[in-house]
């Protein structure tokens, strides 16, 4: 895991001369940012400096007080998620709660959750799934709905494929991205079998009055153009003990979240008592996102 970083560092150092010459072309990337260490190797002082800098930038850009946290994973916690597909009605409340909570770009539209409409006759069949359905009311007769976002795989192909180590699985199971380290190559997007990752093709737009100021450095802080993003299970909320936003907003209560290691958690009850499946089981990505039939 360390080898590519060293190579990258050496490479950058060799380029230092050229970098100086090209400084104008580098935009507002500072020397410290350009030469900083990998997120996992940052000293507490460096990390603190980075958080402060993001706070300053957000405050200037959005004109309000923001708090950028780096709440680490908790000992003895392994997160997992469960979704009751016998209840989901496809209303997309979760999609928009997620956009608001996690500061996704409004234009171009970036949404981490995609709700797929499927034909009851065909069962779970991605070939015929339709994410663009619109209707006066849902559920539409003869259809079921399957919301998909990052599955926080136990064995995540996106992590394996990233050439610079900009995305990794945290000790509590959340797969995160360091937006400052991402080079925008989109290898992870092609590796993800669930289409869970989104790329910022253009400068994201986020109205200041809609910007959520409760931020996590590896989560919902505003992203720049040219980086990949995806669901983090609301890392800024769940590491403070709260439920992800989609869990609380779902009008039919289809969404469940908790600690796999806690025998009294909702998630363990689901695994113990319900019929559960994961998407694309045959790929051995081992999703931490379980779909179940609650009826």
């Amino acid at each position: 895991m360390n080898a590519p970083d060293t190579t990258r560092r050496d490479f950058l150092c060799t380029l230092a001369g050229c970098a100086a010459a090209l400084a104008g072309a580098c935009g507002d990337v500072t020397h410290t940012e350009f030469f900083r260490s990998h997120f996992k190797e940052l000293t507490p002082e460096d990390l603190d400096g980075i958080l402060k800098k993001i706070e300053r930038e957000c405050e200037t850009k959005y004109g309000k007080d923001v708090d950028v946290k780096n709440t680490p994973a908790r000992e003895g916690v392994q997160f997992a998620y469960a979704l009751d597909i016998s209840r989901c009605v496809g209303c997309r409340r979760c999609v928009y709660a997620c956009v608001a909570e996690n500061n996704q770009s409004r234009d171009p539209v970036v949404q981490w959750i995609r709700v797929l409409e499927m034909d009851k006759e065909k069962g779970i069949d991605f070939e015929h799934a339709n994410p663009y359905y619109d209707a006066e009311t849902v559920p539409r007769p003869g259809h079921t709905y399957l919301p998909v976002a990052c599955q926080h795989c136990e064995n995540p192909p996106c992590v394996k494929t990233c050439p610079v180590g900009a995305t990794w699985k945290e000790p509590d199971g959340i797969v995160v991205i360091d937006y400052d380290w991402c080079i925008g190559c989109r290898c992870c997007m092609s590796a993800c079998p669930y289409g869970a990752r989104r790329f910022n093709w253009k400068e994201p737009s986020l109205p200041a009055d809609e910007m959520n100021p409760n931020l996590h450095v590896l989560g919902n802080r505003p992203r720049p153009k040219g980086v990949v993003e995806k669901c983090t299970w609301c890392v800024h909320r769940v590491r403070d003990g709260r439920y992800p936003a989609c869990v609380e907003v779902c009008p039919v209560g289809a969404r469940k979240f908790g600690n796999l290691l806690d025998p009294s958690s909702e998630i363990r009850y689901v695994l113990d008592k319900k019929r559960v499946f994961v998407l694309k089981n045959e790929l051995a990505t081992h999703p931490r996102f379980y779909y179940f039939y609650g009826l």
């Binding site: 009751d84 003990g241 209560g253 600690n259 909702e266 009850y269 008592k273 609650g294």
Partner: peptide
Amino acid sequence: RDWRAGVHGRRSGQWDG
């Protein structure tokens, strides 16, 4: 029974409290 376990219906608050 599912509701008492937090699995039927909507819940808010803390997953750990």
